[in-house]
Write a protein that binds this DNA or RNA. Structure first.
Lengths: 120, 120
DNA sequence: GAAACGTATCACGTGCTGCTTATATAAGCG
DNA sequence: CGCTTATATAAGCAGCACGTGATACGTTTC
């Protein structure tokens, strides 16, 4: 199952949001999710399993409880995939710095003689 | 359909990757996808529709062709959702700078008297 | 050790997603 | 105009993901 498929489910996203604030017991997660989504305990458990098996969460047994925590690696993969699109909304900081240092305004007044480096 | 569901499909991810390099004709996308995934033209067209209707792509007619391009807003939404997890893999640059400025090593030698602000 | 709790797994039903083939629409071209 | 090309839509079908209730497993408590 691909990372994006895992995050495709709103329940799983919500669980990860909960875990982002720190470790949580399976039961605690279950309570919140049952309250918010109205699904059963087995349902939540299955979602936890998906998160587990796809590396989004780790489990640590403590007595009869299971403590779940975020594992960020798959999220980082998604972040990496987004990289190729970041140029659509991220200002080119390096270019910006260069421009500032060289005085872009001055050059612009002189005329646009820069080749259009697909800076978009 | 949620943004993550849209990206859940490998074909749609691939289409976006193609569009990331610039506008493409529906037919051109179709050719690549058919080659890579072995699905039909209507199949590709339906994926393009999903991308369109969920704001991931824009279309511009040019004669009989349709030119598709990336629309980055939904991707930015996903990026924003990831924000709450970034602390798991991003060095806290601001905190780091502060630490460097104050001389963390010195404080650490004095003893850890900082309350554990869940800095993980 | 039996009862109770916390959690996971099983087996099954069902709705939705993604594919296909067939067809519609619309522009270009002889 | 009719033919071809480019693309979209429609209708039908199959697989699977997600839900449920029932149940199994392991730990604690009396």
């Amino acid at each position: 199952m691909h990372a994006f498929d895992v995050l495709g489910d709103p329940v799983r996203r919500r669980i990860l949001e909960l875990l982002a604030d720190g470790e949580m017991t399976s039961g605690a997660v279950s309570d919140v999710i049952r309250e918010e989504f109205g699904i059963s305990q087995p349902g939540v458990s299955q979602h936890l399993k998906v998160l587990r098996e796809n590396g989004f969460a780790t489990v640590r047994p403590e007595g009869t409880r299971r403590l779940y925590a975020v594992n960020s690696e798959p999220l980082r993969d998604i972040d990496a995939w987004l990289d190729r699109f970041r140029r659509f909304w991220t200002p080119r900081l390096d270019a910006l710095a260069t421009e500032l240092a060289r005085g872009k305004r001055e050059r612009r007044l002189r005329g646009a003689d820069d080749p259009p480096r697909s800076t978009t």
